[in-house]
């Protein structure tokens, strides 16, 4: 569905359309806000609030540009509110990247896409990858924890990378298909 179509449906009161928008921008908004606020929980709440506000004000909102830049602008304003309410120095606010720079957002979008592809891995494989990549565990430690052989760990890691590579390369029609099947 096209962005403009999606917004039209949200405007009309379609919760499913809101869900699609949320699914599309949740992670990139979080990632973008994380640069300004280190508290993940707070970031998640602020991002959620953006969608709630979008829904509540949908009748009044006149989009001048894309829904994407509207959401990020809203996020930026809400982050500024957070700073003000916590009486933090507003110095950082000035350093908040300007949302009008769409490349900023698109850069993040690349990581979001990768992360969402990681989430598509079979659960055990994903866990093994996370233990190796994010938790710094050795193959032996992982094998012990998962009650599998070290060799299986090696195979699973290789398969995980292969899956990601194949699904992220340009012309990733395959990924397109599975994402939409989900």
């Amino acid at each position: 569905m096209k962005e403009s179509e999606l917004w039209k449906n949200v405007h009309r009161g379609d919760v499913d359309a809101l869900k699609i928008l949320h699914g599309k921008y949740f992670f990139s908004m979080c990632l973008w806000a994380k640069d300004a606020v280190a508290d993940d929980e707070l970031v998640e709440r602020v991002v959620s609030d953006c969608f709630i506000a979008l829904w509540e004000n949908r009748k009044r909102i006149q989009l001048r540009s894309s829904i994407k830049s509207y959401l990020f602008q809203m996020l930026r304003n809400k982050l500024i509110d957070v700073y003000r309410s916590r009486d933090l120095t507003t110095q950082y606010v000035n350093e908040l990247p300007d949302v009008c720079l769409e490349e900023q957002v698109d850069l993040k979008q690349h990581y979001v896409k990768l992360y969402e592809t990681i989430l598509l891995l079979p659960e055990q494989r994903r866990k093994i990858l996370e233990m190796a990549a994010f938790e710094g565990m050795t193959y032996n430690e992982i094998a012990e924890k998962m009650h599998i052989s070290k060799n299986t760990v090696k195979t699973q890691i290789a398969r995980a990378y292969r899956f990601l590579k194949e699904n992220l390369d340009p012309g990733d029609f395959y990924l397109f298909c599975i994402l939409h099947k989900k």
Binding site: H22, G23, F26, F27, C30, L31, K34, D40, E41, V43, E44, H110, Y111, V112, L114, Y115, I118, L129, E130, A133, F134, L164
Partner: peptide, 13 residues
């Protein structure tokens, strides 16, 4: 890039 996605692990869609 995978290592960079660590930033996203704290969020739940």
């Amino acid at each position: 890039d995978i290592l960079a996605t660590n930033d996203l692990r704290g969020f739940s869609k």
